[in-house]
Nucleic acid binder design. Structure first.
Length: 494
RNA sequence: GGGACGGUAGCUCAGCUGGUAGAGCAAGGCCCUUUUAAGGCUUUGGUCCUGGGUUCGAGUCCCAGCCGUCCCA
């Protein structure tokens, strides 16, 4: 992390640039290419040397010089553009003075070349260059051509260098884009309307998380970066948009890890006249369709573990998962606060005085159950205590009609039948405010306008949130969320 | 928040029980008209993360801090 200061390599390149400036425009923008490297290879990669010679195909290519091999009066260089790379062949006898200048150009410079296609002695499709232009002088040397960029910190802080050096990295972000396009197409064909709701919230809501706080000067009021769009999207279902979704950033003022970035991308959707089981089916269809589309297979490898998306996804209740992984726990005492506290004490799980049986269950589940959910699994029947926006189960008011979806031991999505009983919602908000007053920083605020919206009548509905970054991690086999974020959060460098 | 590991040339990395700072690539110079990690000869390049301490002497040992990676909570 130290070459922000000048070094002799940069100094030499600056001197070269100074000479270019003396001779005229050092940053020309009048070269126009007429072919991409990959298109040339596709069109002519199979043609024989004789065919190419006879056809005398002229091309203009441009790109970053990634390799430079000078052999006296002839040279090869590899030009890389957004599509791929192609080799160019340069000769002193055809290029003259420009050839001598080229010998001083550096790997990393952006170059334009015009010439005809041919095959080298080793049969590589190449451009025999007749005109050559230096388009952009690169002042900073690229990392080692063989080892590339090994320092993960540098890869994240200088993503532009990572993208130059690392084709795998480029591919991850292309796949990310393909996944987001797939999500939109998937929902658009099902009659969902994409909307944009506020990022600046007067009251942070829709999730249990600590918000970033900011201030609106003109209004002289505190604002929060949103932790979830949920309450706004559900207001829209009140307004008559019966199927809505939003793909956008959420902000949570919490720790940074391989699974967490302070800002992350979430798909949230709401569908009227549907319940949480409908959304399980939707997730199943979506994940299988993504696998078909991206991988051509419903089995994928994530970090060495095979994930099988081809079968119907497992569905297990929270209480069953707890019992399955903790055979010593008494099933009859699973909702007994004092009993659960003793269990937590044994497991050294911290809890707060106000935590009821539902919260304690979830703590035990997160400690002992989550990591076992490797194959795609819906953990459902979340306690109402930890689900202040979910619809209570008709038969068992302790739980809600809510699931979280796990793959690889990691939560990817959260969905539930929506609580549309305004009076129940008001009471749940009050309970949250009590928890907040008791010191729970993640408890929710009372959102009076949201309750008012429900009082107008929200149709029965279900909704889900899907973590897009984690989804991309799964389908690109990326171990860290930073690998799927172009510019992940880092401590400031300066 | 706790633990493990790491930070040495532009890049990738060596550097043993403390004793003059090393290699490959990149870069500068010379040679070379079919290379593909091109090759040959040659030269340059260092706040060993920072600050203390121990010592005749610290890249190396000790303490504190900064930055990062991974694991755990």
């Amino acid at each position: 992390m130290s070459d922000n200061d000048e070094n002799h390599l940069i100094g030499e390149r600056r001197a070269k640039l100074a000479k270019l400036r003396e001779r005229g425009n050092a940053f020309p923008n009048d070269f126009r290419r007429d072919a991409l490297a990959a298109d040339i290879v596709t069109a002519y990669g199979e043609k024989s040397a004789e065919t190419l010679e006879a056809a005398a195909v002229r091309v203009k290519v441009a790109g970053r010089m990634r390799a430079k091999r000078v052999m006296g009066k002839a040279s090869f260089a590899r030009l890389e553009d957004s599509s791929g790379a192609i080799q160019v062949f340069l000769q002193q006898q055809t290029l003259g003075e420009v050839y001598d200048e080229f010998k001083g150009w550096d790997v990393g410079d952006v170059i334009g070349a015009e010439g005809t296609l041919f095959r080298t002695k080793t049969n590589e499709l190449s451009v025999r260059v007749e005109k050559l232009h230096l388009l952009t002088k690169s002042l900073r040397p690229l990392p080692d051509k063989w080892h590339g960029i090994a320092d993960t910190e540098l890869r994240y802080r200088r993503r532009y260098v990572d993208l130059i050096m690392n084709e795998d990295s480029r591919r991850v972000f292309e796949t990310r884009s393909a996944i987001v396009r797939y999500l939109r197409a998937f929902l658009d064909t099902r009659g969902f309307l994409e909307v944009e709701t506020p990022m600046l919230h007067p009251i942070p809501g829709g999730a249990a998380a600590r918000p970033f706080k900011t201030h609106h000067n003109a209004l002289d009021s505190d604002m929060y970066l949103r932790i979830a769009p949920e309450l706004y999207l559900k207001r829209l279902t009140v307004g008559g948009f019966e199927r809505v979704y939003e793909i956008n950033r959420n902000f949570r003022n919490e720790g940074v890890s391989t699974q967490h970035n302070p800002e992350f991308t979430m798909l949230e959707l709401y569908q009227a006249y549907a319940d949480y089981t409908d959304l399980m089916e939707m997730i199943e269809t979506l994940f299988q369709g993504l696998a078909d589309s991206l991988l051509g297979s419903r089995k994928l490898i994530y970090q060495g573990i095979e994930i099988d998306l081809s079968q119907s996804f497992a569905r297990k209740s929270i209480e069953d998962i707890i019992l399955e992984n903790n055979p010593d726990i008494d099933p009859m005492s699973l909702r007994d606060t004092l009993y659960l506290r003793r269990i937590c004490d044994q497991m050294k799980i911290p809890y707060k005085a106000g935590d009821g049986p539902g919260k304690l269950q979830i703590e035990i589940f997160e400690r002992t159950g989550e990591h076992t959910l490797v194959q795609p699994t819906f953990a459902y029947a979340y306690p109402a205590e930890v689900s202040p926006l979910s619809r209570r189960n008709d038969a068992d008011p302790f739980i809600t009609d809510r699931w979280e979806f796990f793959v690889g031991g990691r939560e990817l999505a959260n969905g539930f039948s929506e609580l549309n009983d305004a009076e129940d919602q008001a009471q749940r908000f009050k309970d949250q405010v009590e928890r907040k007053d008791a010191g729970d920083e993640e408890a929710m605020y009372y959102d009076a306008d949201y309750v008012r919206a429900l009082e107008y009548g929200m149709p029965p509905a279900a909704g889900l949130g899907l973590g897009v970054d984690r989804l991309v991690m799964l389908y690109t086999n990326s171990p860290s969320i930073r690998d799927v974020l172009l510019f992940p959060h880092m401590r400031p460098e300066y």
